[in-house]
Design a protein around this nucleic acid. Structure first.
Lengths: 338, 338
DNA sequence: CTGTTAGCGCTTTCAC
DNA sequence: GTGAAAGCGCTAACAG
């Protein structure tokens, strides 16, 4: 039971028209005199009639649903992207169905199988790293599909994101130029995060170009990102044969945790060690010494994603693969050394 | 088009049975010999058949959807609650449809109107502050409805949350007992957050009992919670006729922003001023001086919410209104004064 | 501009 | 244990 809501039939009867006229009036499609249209709409409103989208979706083999899969809601990056997409998509009459995959391709694949049966108007997945079956299903579905957050030249359908490898490389090159020679990386073990791996590889490549390898590559799990960063930092400081001269963290929140650990040990940043984050998250705006980080365009990705999706649902595909720039933000947790 | 997925008819044909048998097999209902059941399931798997839930929902006037409305995804509190609910609910075959209301009763009401037409298996809304129409619709729908985060004696149907007023009062009483006499409150202007208002009233009541009023009640908007806290703190320090001796923030993230502002001004906590947060968020685990805060049971709320929902969908309603305890956590940003 | 006829893919109900 | 018939509430396609 969906409550005792009025059906299209009730409205048709009350208005003295056929249900098709009500259908047309509700959907705002052509072929109805303005007079009857407004009369029907008035009666529908009076009857508190809300069209049953389940029936509508089945009949039309199409729904107003937009399925969105993100790895997690804990990372504010995805919350920001989602929030930016929501407005435009809601305004065009869509409904969002959000899934979290926990960085699991298997879970993503299972979700695609389920959500596709809702005949969604569009699908959004995170990154470019999907199971073969997922890719096939998405490609064969004919449903507008958008890959967000990661950039690619060869999207399943559409994509908008940043070049994580380039971002990592840019930071590495920056640190090399500052004179850092013993870099360490600290991330998390939460599932596989292909974007993070790309950044590490970019970072390592830049250092490698100067003949330098990572002195540590630590993955930890913590109760929170902050805690993971703190623990990872502790482990690297305790464990590495060589004391790193710069610690590169998965995100700003990990970096802050690491910074707290260094401070607790009397290791001052940037004097005794460099600290680097990623994303330029909100916390960075209030720190006495801003983190050296990379500013990612989350809001633009979200806005662009909505725009591309809405266009694609109208059959318009202009830029299929959009790469947005990442801005390296030198902060006060690194300095010129050596 | 929902892709060229197999339909129930395809499976029936391949198995040489009627579609009813396939339907029974897929849903795992009684009335089918184990042999044919497993044969059908095998063929369905081979054909990659995924039942069309739109058709199923329409036919049964019931879906596996669970609609959930939270104010925002930016507040990690809701991300935590959602994450805890997701597992059990997914395991029982449900699909989550998450909406954010931006703390707007109007948006919540509109969403209820829409989601109800999906014949959801259950509905989750945040808090107890809904429009009259929302309450009526939910009550009349016959759909299991759960109000989370706020506690109430008189739920629409079910509720699980914390007593925000009591939490505010407890903190106020604690601060009074420590000797604080010039409390200020700093929150945000984001829509109306009835839970936050309850906490402030509880706080004010506790101080009022000692003949003390709030010297400031500041609401600010910032790019982030951290930034809002910093700005609110700056405004209170600049604006208040009397310098407050303790700053009570909406959440830990605002408190951290405020703490940074105080530090920047050379106002040390807890020596020169007290700082109080709410929720005991992850950041508090890595601070050199832990914030005095209130630990809210987000995970338990989520777990309990899922449990209550699953039971209710089976027609079982034991505890209709659950109130979980909040733990006051004295930190190192307050001290005995006066 | 408006209405009629067929379904969408599944589940309910009732036979067998 | 299994199947046939009759919809769920709506929209596509066509007729007038």
């Amino acid at each position: 039971m969906s409550g005792q809501g009025a059906t299209i039939e009730d409205v048709a009867q009350a208005a003295g028209v056929s249900i098709m006229s009500v259908s047309r009036a509700m959907r705002g499609v052509e072929g109805l005199s303005p007079a009857t249209r407004s009369r029907i709409l008035g009666i529908a409103a009076r009857l508190d009639y809300v069209p049953n989208r389940v029936a509508g979706s089945l009949a039309a083999s199409a729904s107003n649903l937009i399925g969105i899969s993100v790895p997690t809601l804990f990372d504010s990056v995805f919350a920001e992207i989602l929030d930016e997409m929501r407005g435009p998509l809601l305004r065009t009459g869509h409904e969002l169905m959000i899934e979290t995959s926990d960085y699991s391709r298997r879970r993503e694949e299972a979700w695609i199988g389920r959500v596709i049966k809702w005949s969604p108007a569009a699908l959004v997945v995170c990154g470019t790293d999907h199971s073969r079956k997922s890719r096939e299903r998405l490609a064969a579905s004919g449903i507008p599909t958008l890959e967000i957050w990661d950039a690619t030249d060869d999207p399943i359908d559409l994509s908008v994101g940043i070049d994580h490898h380039a971002a990592g490389y840019a930071m590495g090159a920056h640190l090399v130029s500052l004179g850092y020679r013993r870099p360490a990386y600290i991330g998390t073990t939460t599932g596989r995060d292909p974007r993070a791996e790309k950044r590490v590889r970019g970072l390592a490549l830049a250092f490698g170009g100067a003949g330098i390898g990572l002195v540590a590559d630590r993955r930890v799990e913590g109760a929170s990102s902050f805690e993971a960063g703190r623990q990872g930092c502790a482990q690297v400081l305790d464990g590495a044969a060589e004391r790193p001269d710069v610690l590169c963290f998965l995100t700003d929140h990990l970096a802050f945790g690491g910074l707290m650990e260094c401070t607790a040990r009397g290791i001052d940043a940037p004097d005794a060690i460099g600290i680097v984050g990623f994303n330029d998250l909100g916390i960075n705006g209030v720190l006495p010494r801003r983190l050296t980080t990379s500013r990612t365009p989350r809001a633009q990705i979200g806005a662009m994603a909505a725009r591309m999706l809405i266009a694609a649902m109208r059959g318009i595909r202009k830029d299929r693969a959009v790469t947005l720039p990442v801005e390296l933000v030198p902060g006060e947790t690194t300095r010129r050394v050596g």
